[in-house]
Design a protein around this nucleic acid. Structure first.
Lengths: 188, 188, 188, 188
DNA sequence: CATGAATGAGCGTTCATTCAT
DNA sequence: GATGAATGAACGCTCATTCAT
């Protein structure tokens, strides 16, 4: 009974938050986000109890979307290097095609509003990539380092590469390849 | 001779800002920073016209301090690898010994209050390191990549390594070495 | 025959309001009251058009309950003093046994949401007591004062006595008697 | 140095709060109070950290003013009854001449924002009256009751009397006397 | 009728900045 | 220059009430 909570509206709010935060930063007002989502001020709080809740949900969702996009179409029968290259290029492609999502995700990552719980969920989304990484590093020079460390290096490398591509799109292809080669030298 | 504006007070404000921002984030109130610096509310604005100005000055200063610390004691007659290792370990040491400065620097780096001008000044501080990097990469696998890109990768690698060490100090030594080896594989 | 609107639900809401207001004050949210009553948010407004309506209904009901409790078992053939003493002790007993109802009633009494109409209805409930009072005062020192004034004094005395007992239950008996004696000296 | 905090402004805020709360109740907005005081929205919080602080300060101040007014001109060499009558009539006079202050004081008294500390301070203000009361009750019928209880009865009687006078000013004199006589019968 | 999502005005409080002292 | 009171726009969040389901 009663009007059911609309999944559309929830998505509209998350989408609006992505856009508004990308352009105004994490201090964007909830009222601005609500207006951008086409809902009333107070409605935002029907879907997310607090602004922090909204930010956490957004973080988890964006992280998941990024991970899914990176893993889509992966063929487990390919060579590890080919698989990793696949992930890498899709990762870069997603970031390039979703500048606002990426910028917002980066901002959220630095916020201390994002709980350990959410960060953990974010890692879970990347589990598929971590698994592949585990496999690759097992015979590489970092075989004795923890997976978490190697993953952190991969993330950092990816982020730096993507940043660079954002500022120099014409050479996206070249930077993407150079970034991957660097990653590969790190781990394999 | 005496500058009417006390250099001491300026430093006190920057120091206080470092501490306060490290613990409260970039949204720390100017009044809180002023109080922590032992000066009045309004005095802060005698030294920095706006909060953004303060943040930019702090960014530039911290970046410079970090760079100086990393380059200190560098001997140009050593092998490039030894030099790079020196920089790397001092870099890590500075971050470890100055957690608040580092945390604040990271936060400032993500803020869109920090102007291109300040970021450029930050890069200038790192010029010594870049120069060394240029030399190293010239014969390495990234000889065709731009210096800026390689520097970005180095930064990312260093940041990831430092983050990791922060969370696992007992194994600092090991992580530091692993991070450097990864960097070296990227560039040389 | 069945009234479409459930009398049970109405009572549940009034009960819940009593409890919630006793602990949170008059600014308690209607949503909180509804939840405590086990009904939905909006259902409250099916039974009471506005929050003010609910408060007024509650005021009248509690006042009536208090009056009824005080008059229960009164024997008109007894001496006026005995009758008054009966009322007094039952009044105190009700208040002591129904702390939340009493606290809420006191709060409601000070609210300017309570209309003259409701206050009048409240007085009507006390008519039985007033009648007795009329009889007593007729030969006492306040024979020339208005019944309303004397009633107000009685109310005030009762409220003060009850408040005192609430804070010192062990001596309830003693305070109850002392209060009654004071009242009796006022009127007889 | 700097502009000193203005006692006038503090008083203006308390005055405005008295007026606004008398007419709108305790839920009056701080912004409304500030405007009525002729100061900016945020200035109110320079003088009172929170709304609750303002309410407590107002409670203590009004209670003190009422007590002072009641005790003014008291001559300790008079008969206890004359002294008590003096207090009583000045009490009633103050309440009659300061309707808003009295209404606000009553409202504040019921608020659970008012701390025990403030209530205690309020009692302290009434110490002079309590002392007189102690003296009177010592030989009266309530000699065995606690001073606090007798004081509560006096308060209640005074409040009821004042309420009554408020609604029927033409007979103020008569009600005032009847109230006092009732009080005197209670205690002496 | 019952439900609970939707609404938007309103609230207490914060804060960068200004300015009287 | 130094101070801290003064300012008022802005914020996150609440809530009585309405209304689609």
């Amino acid at each position: 009974m009663a009007r059911p909570r609309s999944e559309d509206k929830r998505e509209a709010i998350l989408d609006a938050a992505t856009r508004v935060i990308a352009s105004q930063g994490l201090s964007a007002a909830t009222a601005t986000i609500a207006k951008a989502a086409g809902v009333a001020n107070g409605s935002l709080f029907v879907y997310f109890e607090t602004k922090a809740d909204l930010l956490n949900a957004l973080y988890v969702e964006l992280k998941e979307e990024m991970a899914k996009a990176s893993l889509e179409g992966l063929r487990k029968d390919e060579e590890p290097q080919a698989q990793m290259r696949h992930v890498w290029s899709r990762w870069v492609a997603w970031a390039t095609a979703n500048r606002e999502k990426r910028r917002t995700l980066v901002l959220l990552g630095t916020s201390d509003e994002i709980t350990q719980r959410s960060r953990h969920a974010g890692h879970q989304s990347m589990a598929g990539i971590a698994e592949l990484m585990e496999h690759v590093k097992a015979r590489g020079p970092m075989r004795d380092a923890s997976l978490a460390f190697v993953s952190a290096l991969m993330n950092a490398t990816a982020d730096a590469t993507i940043d660079f591509i954002m500022n120099d799109p014409p050479n996206a292809e070249r930077h993407c390849k150079a970034g991957f080669d660097a990653l590969w030298r790190i781990i394999a």
